[in-house]
């Protein structure tokens, strides 16, 4: 391993992308409107694509002739560094939208900042991903507004989702040692700066959506350090089934 910290730092975002992409893939074929089924799949596809770029780079840093699939398929839950937010179950469409919005408002500004990373490879992955994520954020924000300011039922559902997810939104902007080391080394992103922009965006959209902003400040955490919810084990059981059942095969 040439750079353990960079490796950890990359995995944080790679795992976010993979796990959320996997969650969204569960919607495929079951969306509320055909056009939105396509949109959900599209975002899933982008996220899996982003995960692959990060894993490929991480595997190179790791050396040992590892591949993207070794990282996705052969680590156990404690090795995953994604935040708890992305492993939350889909719930109804409103819950999925709110989870997506709370993630997109992070990833959009994260990639924006990562484009100026001193690491050229990370900067170029960020540039590609940023374009995609701008579209994701527009989509999820539009839906938050549409559902929030739609009918009484949709308002209540998406408000409920917001209330439930509120304590999961900040883990992603709380610094781990991988985050602070990456920032100090010049290839990472300042989460403090990011949080300010992100919070402003969240507030603006929730207001337009006529939703009330929850007051709680508590944040669940642990995911970035490998301590997950019970959900992740099942996600991995699904994701990794074939690689685990038939080790060493080409697919």
């Amino acid at each position: 391993m040439t750079d353990q910290n960079k490796f950890d730092y990359i995995l944080q975002q790679a795992d976010n992308c993979l796990i959320l992409g996997q969650r969204l893939a569960e919607w495929c074929g079951h969306g509320p409107i055909l056009e939105q089924d396509i949109a959900l799949t599209n975002i899933s596809l982008d996220l899996i694509g982003q995960a692959r770029l990060f894993y490929q780079y991480a595997a190179e840093i790791q050396g040992e002739e590892k591949t993207e699939d070794d990282l996705a398929y052969l680590r156990d839950a404690w090795g995953f560094k994604n935040v708890l937010l992305v492993e939350q179950p889909n719930g109804d469409f409103g819950f999925t939208i709110m989870r997506q919005f709370l993630y997109d408002t992070f990833s959009c500004y994260f990639y924006e900042a990562l484009m100026s990373s001193s690491d050229e490879r990370l900067a170029s992955i960020a540039a590609k991903s940023h374009k995609e994520t701008l579209y994701h954020m527009k989509w999820s924000a539009d839906w938050v507004i549409r559902l929030g300011d739609g009918t009484v039922e949709s308002h209540n559902r998406v408000q409920q989702a917001l209330n439930e997810l509120w304590s999961y939104k900040d883990e992603i902007v709380i610094e781990t040692s991988a985050d602070s080391d990456a920032l100090a080394a010049g290839y990472g992103v300042s989460l403090a700066e990011l949080k300010e922009k992100r919070d402003a965006k969240i507030t603006a959209v929730l207001e337009e959506a006529t939703l009330s902003i929850p007051e709680g400040t508590y944040s669940h955490k642990g995911g970035k350090e490998g301590v997950h919810s019970e959900h992740l084990g099942y996600i991995l059981a699904d994701l990794q089934f074939l690689q685990r059942a038939y080790p060493g095969n080409e697919w």
């Binding site: 079951h30 969306g31 509320p32 409107i33 939105q36 559902l147 009918t151």
Partner: peptide, 15 residues
């Protein structure tokens, strides 16, 4: 999928 999506389609129309 269709029935669970009814409230979503209604909300989109209302909006």
């Amino acid at each position: 999928a269709y029935d669970d999506g009814a409230w979503v389609r209604e909300a989109a129309n209302a909006y």
